[in-house]
Design a binder for these strands. Structure first.
Lengths: 236, 236
DNA sequence: GCCGCAGTGTTCGCAAACGTACAGACGTTC
DNA sequence: GAACGTCTGTACGTTTGCGAACACTGCGGC
């Protein structure tokens, strides 16, 4: 992939690199399909590749060591990149990362990624700012999980997916949403119905359509927005 | 403060600096008392100082913009340092940080901190690893808030406080714990009683005494440990 | 020794979410 | 067009936690 093409990438980080940084990364980037459920990182295992998502959605998921309970702590789409631990100087984390909505992107090996970061301050600084934004998102997830009811958290999740995927139609099953939010599947069915009754979405089998984005933001009761504002602030 | 004295600091990051890094920071460090409720960072305001906590406990708290709801997303004690945003290259965040248990520490101005980070790769790398550990802790908080009941989360919080404060006696009121966990005050009273009935703690007016640390870890049902393991792994 | 207040224990009814189960609806496959 | 698997709607009873209120209890100050 030539550096010139990077500026056309759907991935915001890639598309806004300085030309020097683009030249640094481009020779090592490899286009890759990202099917549903593809594992991008496994907990406590060395991270092999860093993924710049162009289409689709990846989830960072925390899991209990005691039992099988798990919950999503962060989502990554075309606005970011996986492998937060690598950016911060270590090679693994206790979390899993996998594709939640199928798509594609560019990937680079961990070694080449590390070399590129070491070679360019502007690249590293840019990636650190992304780390900041993601950590704010994780903190907001902690807030939402502790203080909001299912309906609010569902609205927040739909908005975050909407931000990262082109179009108003999201191919999602109740079951998958339940896993992401860490709640019962019928709880999702009920919450979707409430949002639908308010005219904010239309839910069909395996498909949620966003009708009223502004209304959804209100439905979140203040639990949506902080990480998004932070992203705009630091990246402009 | 001379560099030599830093190696005796109760703050783990300060005490383990290379001698070169200690010389870099020491001239700018200023000892400071950290009374209860002292604000270390305010949301959306420029961070003025970076605090290396030596005794006591600081909380990072997220707050809803809509209403007044708030919840703790991370705790920082003698094992770390405040100002995650500065480490990651920005000057503010949407969170508040303040002292939750009174103590003391060393502080340095944001400007001097930035200069020191720019001047020393080893210092910056060390701080980035701390950022990784804190982000894992925040993710674990998201997990706990979403999947655990009050009793489990309370046990986790007590263990985290125990890790960071010398001694088994923690001066804490139910009210304060309720704010940290984002739950009702009587919910804390009840949960403390349950832990006390199991012989894990003794609760007196404004004082919680840890009796059976191992038992408390079990009482967490798997929600304690990941960030702590990560801290040991990256810092040894 | 009394007052006053912060801190704690306990209660009520109610809302939210749980685990489980089962029936219907859709859509693909044969 | 029948069969099957997936997805969705709905229904139990139960648990957890909420909001609000009120009484009690240490403990320091006067």
């Amino acid at each position: 992939m030539s550096p010139r093409v990077l500026s056309d990438s759907a991935n915001i980080i890639l598309s806004r690199l300085t030309s020097a940084d683009a030249e640094l990364l481009a020779p090592h980037l490899e286009p890759i399909e990202l099917p549903l459920r593809k594992s991008l990182e496994q907990r406590d295992k060395e991270i092999e590749h860093v993924y710049f998502v162009e289409h689709g959605l990846a989830s960072v998921v925390a899991k209990s060591r005691a039992d099988g309970r798990s919950i999503e702590v962060g989502v990554i789409g075309c606005e970011g990149v996986t492998a937060l631990p690598l950016i911060l100087g270590t090679d693994r984390s206790p979390h899993d990362t996998f594709m939640q909505v199928a798509g594609d992107g560019q990937r680079i090996s961990a070694d080449n990624f590390r070399r590129a970061m070491a070679a360019s301050n502007t690249l590293r600084d840019r990636l650190l700012l992304w780390a900041h934004v993601l950590s704010v998102q994780i903190a907001q997830t902690a807030f939402a999980n502790g203080r909001s009811k299912i309906e609010d958290r569902l609205a927040r999740w739909l908005l975050m997916a909407h931000d990262r995927l082109g179009g108003d139609e999201l191919a999602l099953t109740h079951e998958f949403l339940a896993v992401m939010l860490g709640v019962r599947r019928p709880g999702v069915t009920l919450a979707l119905k409430l949002l639908e009754n308010d005219g904010l979405i239309v839910a069909k089998r395996g498909l949620v359509t966003i009708i009223d984005r502004e209304g959804l933001i209100e439905a979140c009761n203040g639990v949506y927005g902080a990480p998004e504002a932070e992203h705009r602030r630091v990246f402009g």
